[in-house]
């Protein structure tokens, strides 16, 4: 578990205690509502993580290393954008992978494209996201994330 998970746990625990002191009945209702919300999305989450697991096995950091090595240029950026969009990794895996890629000769723009799309663009989430919001909302959000990643890669290319 990362630092931010701990922060989330501590914050929730504090709020839960305050809520319990203030109103036991309301707190009970809150827990029930949270539980119901979880049960509602569990069927969406199970296939999602099954799929993410497969993607993570098929697209390994090793393969990414080979694809965006030295002097991969614009093609390297495009590969990074695609790989980052279809795959998913938490930042605690993404940042060290980016650092390793840099050491192995990949450029900053390629790494920028990969790191940002890995986190912000979620092709694997499209099914779940559509269920929550709508098709149009999902498409627009992912487009925004992809455009943002492209701009970051371009700016990094210019300044680094």
């Amino acid at each position: 578990m990362g630092i931010s998970s701990y922060i989330l746990y501590v914050l929730t625990a504090v709020l839960l205690v305050i809520s319990f002191i203030k109103d036991k009945k309301k707190t009970k209702k809150a827990l029930k509502k949270g539980y119901m919300a979880f049960i509602k999305i569990l069927p969406v989450l199970i296939p999602l993580f099954l799929f993410v697991g497969i993607i993570l096995t098929l697209i390994t950091p090793d393969q990414i290393r080979q694809a965006i090595g030295e002097d991969s240029g614009v093609i390297g950026v495009i590969i990074s954008l695609v790989v980052g969009s279809v795959s998913f990794m938490p930042p605690f895996v993404t940042y060290p992978l980016g650092a390793e890629l840099l050491e192995n000769g990949a450029g900053y723009p390629q790494v920028a494209a990969l790191v940002t799309t890995l986190m912000a663009v979620g092709f694997v989430y499209i099914g779940a996201e559509t269920k929550f919001f709508s098709k149009r909302a999902t498409l627009l959000r992912n487009s925004l994330a992809l455009i943002g990643s492209i701009v970051v890669a371009i700016v990094i290319w210019m300044v680094m």
Partner: peptide, 14 residues
């Protein structure tokens, strides 16, 4: 999951 859904519940009632 536990903190997120507890937060959702708390947010909903409070």
């Amino acid at each position: 999951v536990p903190p997120i859904f507890i937060l959702i519940g708390l947010m909903d009632v409070w």
